[in-house]
């Protein structure tokens, strides 16, 4: 079992960076077992291919915009939903995650399971801080990531204080 937790987004654009903030804090506060690799992916694409290839579980934390949703709302999509989502949507970031996943599929090295935890943003203003509404749900995002790892049979404990 090999799981990759990938935080993506731009930390210079406030809530756009929520996925990176979540994964950074996960690494700071929790003792991740060797079968879990946490990556601050930023807005990169192909650079991450190496490490997500052949993973049993790819867990993505990202900012995800949906209609009529309150800032800080958390959405989970998985597997077929992710594929369907990438069929209709081309990210403004063109060599983004969708292309890397598709390249993995083409190569026959796609992660076996992909889950995305998305957070509704409030602001993309130029700032390195999250808005209060999004910062407030960061612990819940981390809990959701840990729960997903738990469902895959990986127990994660908090670091000793």
């Amino acid at each position: 079992m090999r799981a990759v937790v990938l935080g993506v987004g731009n930390i210079l654009m406030s809530d756009e960076g929520v996925g990176v903030h979540a994964v950074t804090r996960l690494m700071e506060e929790y003792q991740l077992p060797p079968e879990v690799e946490a990556i601050d992916g930023g807005t990169s694409g192909m650079d991450c291919l190496d490490r997500i290839a052949d993973a049993d579980l790819l867990l993505i934390a990202d900012c995800m915009r949906r209609k009529d949703t309150a800032p800080g709302s958390i959405t989970r999509i998985a597997d077929d939903e992710i594929a369907a989502y990438f069929r209709t949507r081309i990210s403004p970031h063109q060599v983004g995650l969708s292309d890397v996943l598709a390249a993995c599929t083409f190569q026959g090295i796609a992660p076996k399971k992909v889950v995305m935890i998305g957070v509704q943003p409030e602001s993309f203003d130029t700032a390195m801080e999250l808005t209060p509404a999004v910062a407030a749900v960061l612990p819940e995002v981390i809990d959701r990531l840990i729960a997903e790892l738990g469902a895959a049979g990986i127990a994660v404990a908090a670091k000793a204080a």
């Binding site: 987004g9 756009e16 807005t43 995800m64 989502y85 209709t88 949507r89 403004p92 970031h93 943003p121």
Partner: peptide, 15 residues
């Protein structure tokens, strides 16, 4: 790419 990587669930073809 001085920025955005946001995932958009609205599903509009953007091109």
């Amino acid at each position: 790419a001085c920025a955005v990587h946001v995932q958009d669930e609205e599903g509009n073809p953007v091109v």
